[in-house]
């Protein structure tokens, strides 16, 4: 009987070893450990044994049973792992194939500049003002110190609708309207928007373009405030290491007036093709709001003062991103839009 048990163990372990599926292993278990299996038979035959032999064989039988059980379980785990591995191997995909992309669309480059400016100036205590794109001569010119026969009107040829209305040539009429509405109170606004001039479209001219103007009116606003504000703005858009240079200029609606250059962001001031060798790039105009403009808008120009500035959004974008043709902004070629 002892030999029988040992023989059983050897056979069982051998069968476990060669079984390679969970099903085969289950069959082995039933074959050897099942109710109708040889182990049960052996144990049943125990009754015929002597009292001395019985515990010895019993112990051996338990050992054999435990050994088969143990080996079987270990083998099952092993086979499970192999089977899983095989299953996963069969599931292998080419992980370099394209993903199911859902790309968000892009914001227009001009919009990105406007958003950046709005966020910056809101942080500086400004709000956003807008106005009509078809304007009266009164708001577009006269309220800005450009009476009908003013020579400076030559500077901007306009699209007139009637004798008295036209497509605004700058966003300044929004300033005039905001000042009138403010009724003598302080103002801090930026005015982004579309403007129109009678230009043939080419690489550097566009009959439609975007401006952002800023206006602050309060007690004791100075040119130093304008300079400081422009420095904040220039560093935001073109980088912390940019410097600005002010040059005297002329605009009918500001006095004193300034033209603002920034140190070239490409060469840092040494001179290159972007700055045409000068180290500086002309970037915007501004100045102290002309006393006539303040007075026409209902302010006492001896008590209140203000500054205003205006930038061309396309020019900013072209300089910052090296865009070489202003028409790109309006043809909306996807290969252009998707770059930014």
């Amino acid at each position: 009987m002892k030999e029988q048990l040992e023989q059983l163990q050897v056979e069982a372990l051998e069968e476990i070893k060669v079984a390679s599926t969970q099903k085969a292993l289950n069959d082995v278990r039933i074959k050897y450990l099942g109710k109708k299996g040889p182990m049960t038979e052996v144990l049943r035959g125990m009754g015929k044994l002597s009292a001395e032999e019985r515990p010895v064989v019993g112990e051996l039988a338990n050992k054999v049973r435990a050994s088969i059980q143990e080996t079987l379980e270990a083998r099952i785990e092993e086979v499970k792992a192999i089977e899983l591995e095989a299953k996963l191997a069969a599931e292998t995909i080419d992980v370099t194939l394209p993903g199911r992309t859902t790309f968000p669309g892009n914001s227009h480059l001009l919009q990105q500049i406007i958003d950046e400016m709005e966020d910056l100036f809101v942080g500086l205590g400004y709000t956003i003002a807008e106005g009509p794109e078809v304007e009266t001569d009164l708001y577009n010119f006269e309220m800005l110190n450009l009476p009908k026969d003013h020579p400076a009107r030559d500077m901007q040829d306009s699209f007139y609708i009637t004798d008295e209305t036209l497509l605004r040539t700058h966003t300044s009429p929004v300033q005039a309207r905001t000042m009138l509405e403010a009724n003598g109170q302080p103002i801090r606004i930026i005015c982004p928007g579309k403007v129109y001039r009678r230009d043939e479209d080419d690489a550097t001219h566009s009959h439609q373009f975007m401006q952002i103007e800023g206006l602050v009116v309060d007690e004791s606003i100075s040119m130093a405030d304008l300079k400081g504000t422009l420095e904040v703005f220039v560093k935001q858009l073109f980088g912390e290491s940019r410097e600005i240079r002010l040059r005297p200029s002329f605009f009918p609606f500001t006095e004193p007036s300034v033209e603002v250059d920034i140190s070239c962001f490409k060469c840092g001031g040494k001179g290159c093709n972007v700055c045409k060798g000068t180290g500086w790039i002309e970037i915007l105009g501004g100045g102290m709001v002309h006393p006539h403009v303040l007075e026409m808008a209902g302010y006492d120009s001896t008590k209140m003062s203000g500054f205003a500035f205006g930038i061309g959004v396309e020019r900013m974008a072209m300089l910052k991103h090296g865009v070489d043709d202003i028409r790109h902004f309006y043809t909306n070629d996807l290969r252009f839009i998707e770059q930014f």
Partner: peptide, 14 residues
């Protein structure tokens, strides 16, 4: 010219 920012406070908002 020196640089400064307007001395008065104002509420900025979109």
């Amino acid at each position: 010219l020196p640089s400064s920012l307007p001395a008065s406070q104002a509420k900025g908002y979109l």
